[in-house]
Design a protein around this nucleic acid. Sequence first.
RNA 1: CGGGAUGUAGCGCAGUUUGGUAGCGCAUCUGGUUUGGGACCAGAGGGCCGCAGGUUCGAAUCCUGUCAUCCCGACCA
Length: 568
Amino acid sequence: MRMSKLLMPTLREVPAEAEITSHKLMLRAGLIKKLAAGIYSYLPLGLRTLKKVEQIVREEMDNAGAQELIMSALLPAEAYQASGRWEVFGPSMFKLKDRNDRDFCLGPTHEELFTQTVIDCVRSYKEYPMTLYQIQNKYRDEGRPRFGIIRSREFVMKDAYSFDLTEEGLDESYKKMYEAYCRIFTRLGLDFTIVDADSGAMGGSGSQEFMVKSPVGEDGIAYCDGCGYAANYEKAECIPQAAESVEGDFDIEKIHTPNVHTIEELVEFMGAKAYNFAKTIIYKADDKYVAAMVRGDREVNEVKLKNLVGCIDDLELAEPFMVRQITNAEVGFAGPVGLDIPIYVDKEVEMMKNFIVGANETDMHYKNVNINKDFTPTVVADIRVIEEGDVCPKCGKKIKTAQGIEVGHIFKLGTKYSDALGLKYLDEDGKSKTVIMGCYGIGVTRCLAAAIEQNNDENGIIWPVSIAPYQAMVIPVNSKVEEQVKTAEKIYEELKAQGIEVLLDDRNERAGVKFKDADLIGIPVRIVVGKKCGEGIVEYKERRSDASEEKTIENAIDSVVEFVKSNI
RNA sequence: CGGGAUGUAGCGCAGUUUGGUAGCGCAUCUGGUUUGGGACCAGAGGGCCGCAGGUUCGAAUCCUGUCAUCCCGACCA
């Protein structure tokens, strides 16, 4: 491709809307263009990379025995109404009506439709097991789209669904997808971590996420270098850690703590440590109210609590007026003593002695509180968020924490959708049984952003060869020097002939502009044709490296071809 | 959905406090000089100051409303 004809609006300055590296670079390199919040056009360079990512995903899915099909993004409401998700999705589903006032939506995910397709198309149990997938646009009206294409309202997703007759079959299908995902993310040049994830309200028996570690990631992950354990914060099991307590036999005592609401204020006021307190937080779980207690220096893990309480729909902090009604006090003074709702207590609280809690009375706390003596927990369980410094639940070494971008998720669904929609089969004995499903997603567009997050420097993107929009670039330094131009043309044609995807910077720009753009758009390898081209010498440079080498024209071409072939 | 901020040329911004002809840098176009890391000189084009009302002789500027975008948090099947 000749760059004089390429639509590549590179920017010198960073558009004000971008905050994170990948978003800035995608805008500056002319990969994408924003149309509205969370909605982007893909310009030629961005689209080429997107298609390469899609192709890698496609190849590995096909290799794993999955079959590609594609569904409409515009979907009738019935299947979603049947599964109950028409309501569950709520405002995050783009809903619309046709001219006859029938309900439609833009597909946010396609469990229902794939299930329905299998119901409609599969006739005999002999056709199973089967895994189907598509690579297609998804639509979610996110409350808060952000970070460019990391969380957008229209995005490309690969979604796959497996259909098995037995649990063992599901395990096998799941394993194939797991392995395919490892190959995919490796080929994409991503440094990824596989973490245990919460299966939550979706039910199902197992779930793992593929995370790309990055400070801009929206998920917290806990991992152990010792044994390789890794889990999403939501899921990571916490081993209770003993903290120093006030020893001795004391009686509960009410103390006046005016205008002391937060743990920080309490620490200040009482001169005790945060771990001498237990905080009591009132939650609304669906229609009922519960209290959760964790040590003062810990956080409640709402996912664990939600699962424990058996909350189906929604777990959120109780409204302040309900907190007042339940505790008879202003917010900030809730405590377990005399509380009339179920109390879920973290295991660590059970280890504490003579601790401090709210007194369910404004401006009052209790000290010297002891569990089972002063109050009785409804349930004692692990309900806190894991932290740096916790110990690994598998091997006992120190846990580390990081932020991660979720690029893939695999999930043993079980029979949730096959039950809801009636996906059954007659087995060899003529008995009716339910098909067991798994679902497997990859955020294809998000992978692009993740790849840039992991592969860049102060000058721009450093594409892995496998997904670079073009693999190589030829730059004549001075467009007025006919010898350089002709030599560059020759190299360009020769590289094309050898099957390399190559850009020729034939623009009438100064050398500096060409170099800056080359770095910014991150083409993995380039040949610079300069002053020594009369002697048959050109410059070979890899984007990843600072150094460049002088080579003969033939050697430079060979080096580019070899570099590309060996890195793809 | 709660909190905060911002809307002025393709991009980055000033001007708003204190109302008085719409500005700067980059980019674009023309001519010239340049040509190995975002050149220089001269000239030119480009704006419903987010939108709608209001106050005023006069509004980018003050008031009201509204829309949009971004950030923090909640939510994320």
